[in-house]
Design a binder for these strands. Structure first.
Lengths: 211, 211
DNA sequence: GTCATCATGTAAGCCGTTACATGATTGC
DNA sequence: GCAATCATGTAACGGCTTACATGATGAC
């Protein structure tokens, strides 16, 4: 999100659900430490702290001296001046982002894939296709294993467990065909790479048909 | 699983995937502490430790005294005699199981629902129906929120994020109709509660149709 | 006699959460 | 002036994982 504009933590948290659908939900307890880590790593930097330029001593009145003394007494404890910290992404940050986005995901971390796809626009067409096809291969393997496990244990499964496993299998199948559609959409339209073999009206071939 | 027969930890871990489909995967690092906690809570008990009845001092030979001394020196450190620990479920365990299985699940903990349904056979028909309908209501709410979020932010979403959110929405819809089928299957067949209103050939009414 | 497998456990660590603590800004 | 909200952070904890440590059993 910082690739589009500098933002501060609170704002980031507010916008996350809009950008990622309701599948985000990061708590402050993990957001702020994450920002601190990214800043320490040089991936982001504080573009502008809160405009702490309140009039040096506003309405200098009788109590101002006392208040200033009080403030001075406790300020040293926390060096930061508790205001908005607007972060911007750095060059290193862009590089890190690309690296993380292109990195192969854990086979069983579904969220990682979703997150990467959500930012698919920042990937090169090739990297995007790799992401989709890697994911597809993982789902196909998962499906095969699930089917093998079913064959091995289906008689031990009662109706509820079986229904669960079957529903799960169907979901995976649907995920695969969804990926197929995304993959097909990634391929350049036929009229951009004309050849004697391509017929614009023919449906795109399935990369590897689901059995 | 202990409801069906006493088993030891290693065996439990081996069988888990068969019983729950491949959606289980518990590591030893969490399984053994869990068993220890359950035992401490009185939910399970060691039915039979490993048959440690090896001949008291097998083949008493020249080195036996030395070996025994060595063993005696280090045995006090670990009181247990490292063998199979076959656990059986206790009365308290059955009660705890039922309590946990019937407890309302966290709205966003999908795994909890799956786990409960997998052991649905141990629930009373009423509790089972409650489980299914509670889950259905949660999914319906999730769907509504997702759609509201989409309406609010759809123009900000690019093709990838949108496709993701839409696919997610469809999955939820399918989950709901799957639940509807399960719920319908729970209802006693028409010929068991005959009434002037029930027509065996008419399709079951959807509890609350998905819009 | 030694290797693979069975079998149980502990320790360190990661990742994320909730609850808490603090402070700044704004509207009434 | 004071409440709501914006805004940042820390602390404690929970749950799960991997890596490590240990030991028993059986096959060859």
């Amino acid at each position: 999100m910082l690739k589009e504009q500098p933002l501060h933590g609170y704002e980031l948290k507010k916008r996350l659900p809009e950008v990622l659908g309701p599948l985000s939900r990061v708590s402050f307890g993990s957001l702020y430490p994450a920002l601190a880590k990214l800043e320490a790593a040089g991936a982001i930097s504080v573009a502008a702290a809160a405009d702490t330029s309140r009039p040096a001593i506003p309405m200098t009145g009788s109590l101002a001296g006392e208040a200033a003394a009080f403030r001075a007494r406790r300020l040293p404890i926390r060096a930061d001046r508790r205001g908005k910290k607007v972060y911007a992404i750095t060059e290193r940050g862009h590089a890190l982002f690309e690296e993380l986005l292109a990195a192969p995901a854990d086979a069983d971390d579904d969220r990682a894939f979703s997150l990467k796809l959500a930012f698919g626009r920042y990937l090169s067409p090739e990297a995007r296709l790799r992401l989709l096809e890697r994911r597809r291969a993982q789902l196909v393997e998962r499906l095969e294993q699930a089917r093998a496990a079913m064959r091995a244990a289906s008689e031990r499964l009662d109706a509820y467990a079986r229904s669960l496993v079957e529903h799960d299998t169907e979901s995976t199948e649907r995920d695969i065909s969804w990926l197929d559609r995304l993959i097909a959409a990634e391929r350049p339209p036929a009229d951009l790479r004309p050849s004697s073999l391509s017929d614009p009206s023919a449906p795109a071939a399935d990369p590897t048909p689901v059995p």
